[in-house]
Simulated scan of single mutants.
Amino acid sequence: MSAGLLLGAMALDAVMGEPRWLWSRVPHPAVLMGRLIGLADIRFNTGPRWHNGVLVVLGLVAGAALLGVVIEALPLGWLWSLIGGAILLAQKSLVQHVQAVADGLRYGVGEGRRAVAMIVGRDTRAMDEPAIARAAIESAAENFSDGVIAPAFWFLVGGLPGILVYKIVNTADSMIGYRTPRHEEFGWAAARLDDVLNWVPARITACLIALAFWSGRAVDVVRQDAGLHRSPNAGWPEAAMAGVLDVALSGPRSYHGQSRDFPWVNGSGERQIGVAEIERAISVLWRVWAVVAACTLVLALF
């Protein structure tokens, strides 16, 4: 049943996305997760921080799994699972955010910077057009893995409890999984568990991108450059995307005013990129989404 529900959730997400009329009136589940994690950060990020961080993550995982089980047990539980899955997938919203960068660049670099600042954590004030395009494409690849393939994978594996556990861990990592004095110990468990939950989906994403375009070049770039990324997982979809588009990604950038000299991914690829390459990346997202939907349909039927 999970495959059929996943297919329905994917279709609903692709059509509806995140309607403003709804989420302007009630808080999105991801917002509620964020509030809960924020409260835990305030209350428990003291004393033995590593120990408390582990306990918080265990509590979040147990609570998310229990909530999923309870919802699935309700009357019409399959329907609530389908709706929950659609809400927690992010294909359409990801495409809209990446497209906004391309649309902004059409008006000028300033608008492009403002749009890309909504989806990346690096400094954007000094970005030129190629840097904006690289940031948008990298975000498209990484968030396709984190926001579409990984939640779909865990929904397929564990139903609504599976996707809820994944999303709350991923949200915790995005909030407290940083190597800062405040969060290095407290957020360690969230960051490591997020790495574990994304290990398989990140590699599936890279394979799907290469498969969707039958691209040997993507396979070569993944083999050579996926391990260069500072994340154990994000380099895989990013390298595959770079190979399919034949563009150079990653490279030097600035965080909080400090320049970081990261290695290039597919360094021989095109570096003078812009709107056209961003929109080609969006086409990649939809093509791979279609491949995933087709595979899910086959699973649902057989």
Rank of each mutant, 00 (worst) to 15 (best):
N198R: 02
G63P: 06
R271P: 01
S93N: 12
A30K: 03
I119A: 07
V56H: 02
I119M: 05
F302R: 15
A293L: 03
E279F: 08
A30D: 15
A11D: 05
A242G: 06
D246C: 06
G121P: 02
M127W: 06
L74Y: 04
M175H: 09
P130Y: 05
A73N: 14
Y255M: 10
W78T: 11
F44A: 08
H183I: 14
Y107T: 13
L299R: 03
L67D: 07
G274D: 06
L299C: 06
W236Y: 12
A239V: 06
E129P: 04
V15L: 15
A172L: 09
A150R: 02
L89V: 06
E18L: 10
L105T: 05
H183E: 11
I209M: 08
A9C: 04
D41Y: 10
H183A: 10
A240S: 08
G216D: 12
L299A: 03
V165Q: 08
P252A: 11
A202E: 01
S24M: 15
W78M: 09
L79V: 12
S283H: 14
A9K: 01
S174C: 08
L22Y: 12
P252D: 10
L60G: 00
D146Q: 08
P161L: 00
I282N: 04
H51M: 13
G235I: 11
M16Y: 08
P161I: 08
G257H: 07
A206E: 06
P27R: 14
V98C: 05
P75S: 03
R113E: 12
R25C: 13
L66P: 12
G187N: 04
T205W: 13
A189S: 15
R49L: 05
E111T: 11
T205Y: 01
M10L: 11
E138S: 04
I149P: 00
D41A: 09
A239R: 04
E111N: 13
G267T: 03
F144E: 07
P181C: 08
V95F: 00
A133M: 03
I37F: 09
N52W: 15
P161M: 02
L285T: 03
P181T: 05
G77Q: 09
L67E: 01
E279T: 10
A131S: 10
S145R: 07
E129C: 09
T205M: 11
A136W: 02
L39W: 15
R106Y: 14
M10K: 00
W286K: 06
W23V: 12
A150D: 04
S174D: 12
Q272F: 14
D195K: 11
G38P: 05
P130H: 04
A9T: 02
G53V: 01
A140P: 01
V98R: 06
L79F: 14
A248H: 00
G162N: 02
P75K: 13
M241Q: 02
G112M: 07
E184M: 15
A40I: 03
A117T: 05
I163A: 00
G53F: 01
S139R: 01
F44D: 13
M33G: 03
A136D: 08
A290D: 02
G274L: 03
P232S: 07
M1P: 11
L197T: 01
L156Q: 01
C295H: 03
R253A: 12
V284Q: 00
V148T: 03
Y255A: 10
I204D: 03
L22K: 10
R35W: 08
S283G: 15
A242W: 07
A11Q: 07
I137A: 06
V292N: 01
L6K: 00
N266P: 00
L60M: 13
L197E: 05
V165M: 09
R25M: 13
